[in-house]
Design a binder for these strands. Structure first.
Lengths: 340, 340
DNA sequence: GTTAGCACTCGAATAAAGTGAGTGCTAAAT
DNA sequence: ATTTAGCACTCACTTTATTCGAGTGCTAAC
């Protein structure tokens, strides 16, 4: 459908625009080394490419700018798999070298690297923690009124919550209950915890504890938590550096979206395996019309998975960014594999 | 030194400028209800106030704008103690009504309220956690290679860290060690933990454990953490709504400062009891020249303390903000008092 | 099919003119 | 001795006009 020459020209134009953020004119293209034709020829081809919907003009006598269709084609067909620079590779390797042991730390660091290396905003969705399984429940009394319940999951995630101790429950009873709970709840996914508590555990407590009503309501308070999947964001202010966001209103509305954790999480969840690119209107939110979102999944050894994403203008360095996110998601998966 | 009329005029001018962000002219002042004099009189007084350094002009024929000295005087002498609106009070009360049990949650919420109610950026410095004392140490083995160490402090703060288990240590030895540690380290401030480990504990482990060298190095890994005092920030993007920050460079450099957690923490630490206002150059950072920082201390029952702060343009609603931060810091102190 | 040439378009930059909110100063009124 | 009306003046901001140049489309020649 497109001639080789058109492919070449389209590629060169988009490459140039990605670099400069300026509409690309026929003359500047004809001067490139890889182009042997005159500006007039380029103009003709550009007119054709525009007619086909790959390019746009900002006004009648301006240079050309890639359309969303253009970017889509570019991403699908024109990306030459780029080797990351040594500098980039060493940055990543360096960061993962000192054996980090905690999920949070790895993710935080990854988000940092990604945004630092790209100057875009990175967003990482943690694994769905409500699917992780309880490893151990611990209750630490602080004083005679309050205590802290600590949940440790099989992925090493730690959640804690403080609550009031009803006066009716004394220390030995507490220990007893914790033991019962640990016996019965170990290996149960967090999301099922509350349910189990209401069925099996209730009866058990009734048998073993004097003040079972009090004990029960207090356990409810301790265990009923939201277990919300967390979103890690890096380089939020990088958005300000992109020329397409010199309009503060756009920045504001974009920030508004990013801050809606639930919607953002849903958006990231939807991706399948591999790197995935959403360009402009392919994104569900109005405020992201001028943005592209690159996502990739990472896994945590078992079937658990999360998403790593990068948000930038549609004029994005797809080449580099895709390679980077690919490498990083694999590196994360690799790091986690050893743990579980 | 200043006549009553001058005081009144200065107050009206600053009030007006805080509201509108526009230079204030003599005519608009003379039209106010509380002003009975003509614009010419106001002009004369304004000239005097400028000569004394309380006001400035943006250019030779512009209206007046408060100088830093003006703001300082305003804050020190002209603030009429404002009653908070019912709406504000109920927002605060509402937020603190559902008995929150965790420090983090209270602080997070407070930061949220403060930034929402003021449209400025709120910054809350947590208590110096390295001064809090160890309540309990827990070690939860995840599998045969790794485990999680959990520290609970007397303030209910929970820290956790994952680490590798050396193969040489088996499960019973682990339990034994944890018991020893809990016996010896309970009540020790976090900051002293490492030191104690190196002295007393080392000997104990040597006596009770076969593989004491391994055990020791592994404990080091588990306990040597940074215990960094945390900074909670709310409404970071509110800065974008202030007209004085329509210049993106200013926003960027301000964000750069805010993100330097250590320097920011030091800045907040310095405040004494009560509400404290730093205007423009009274702040140590260049990027904060156009900003004011309002701080107040809150306490956690015992001698522990943290700082609650609000960052906005020098043209700040001092009146309302000071009342708010005052109420909120007291409310926080009040809430925490019950806990410890 | 390619390219040189040329008229044309339109945004961006620059200049010129006009507007208006504000000032300082003077002289008259209180 | 204050206060105020009046007036000339200042200067940012807005509007309008002008120029400039990078870019286009089209045509005709190669």
């Amino acid at each position: 459908m497109l001639t080789d020459r058109q492919l070449l020209i389209l590629q060169v134009i988009i490459d140039d625009f990605i670099l400069t953020a300026q509409p690309v004119g026929s003359r500047s293209i004809s001067k490139k080394d890889e182009i042997t034709h005159s500006s007039a020829t380029i103009r003709n081809e550009m007119a054709d490419l525009e007619e086909m919907g790959f390019l746009e003009k900002t006004h009648s006598s301006s240079g050309r700018v890639p359309s969303e269709k253009g970017y889509r084609f570019y991403v699908d067909h024109l990306l030459s798999p780029l080797r990351l620079s040594n500098q980039e590779l060493t940055t990543i390797r360096q960061a993962f070298k000192d054996r980090m042991m905690e999920f949070e730390r790895v993710v935080q660091k990854s988000a940092g690297i990604l945004s630092e290396l790209t100057n875009y905003t990175s967003i990482i969705l943690g694994p769905e923690i409500f699917e992780t399984k309880l490893k151990q429940l611990q209750i630490v009394p602080l004083n005679d009124q309050s205590a802290i319940a600590i949940l440790v999951t099989d992925t090493g995630h730690v959640e804690h919550r403080a609550f009031n101790i009803p006066v009716e429950i004394d220390h030995p009873q507490l220990e007893k209950m914790v033991n019962i709970l640990n016996d019965r709840l170990r290996g149960v996914p967090l999301v099922k915890l509350y349910e189990k508590l209401q069925t099996e555990i209730y009866d058990l407590i009734e048998i073993h504890t004097d003040q079972h009503e009090h004990a029960y309501s207090y356990l409810q308070a301790a265990l009923l938590d939201e277990h919300q999947t967390k979103l890690y964001i890096g380089g939020k202010t990088n958005i300000l550096m992109q020329p397409e966001f010199k309009d503060l209103d756009k920045v504001r509305s974009l920030y508004a979206i990013i801050e809606k954790e639930n919607e953002m999480a849903d958006l990231l969840r939807s991706g399948e395996q591999g790197v995935h690119v959403r360009i402009g209107h392919e994104n569900p939110f109005d405020a992201m019309q001028n943005c592209s979102l690159i996502t990739a999944r990472y896994t945590l050894g078992n079937e658990q998975a999360g998403t790593i994403a990068l948000l930038g203008p549609t004029r994005m360095e797809y080449n580099r960014v895709i390679s980077l996110i690919n490498v990083l998601s694999k590196q994360m998966t690799e790091t986690f594999r050893g743990w579980y």
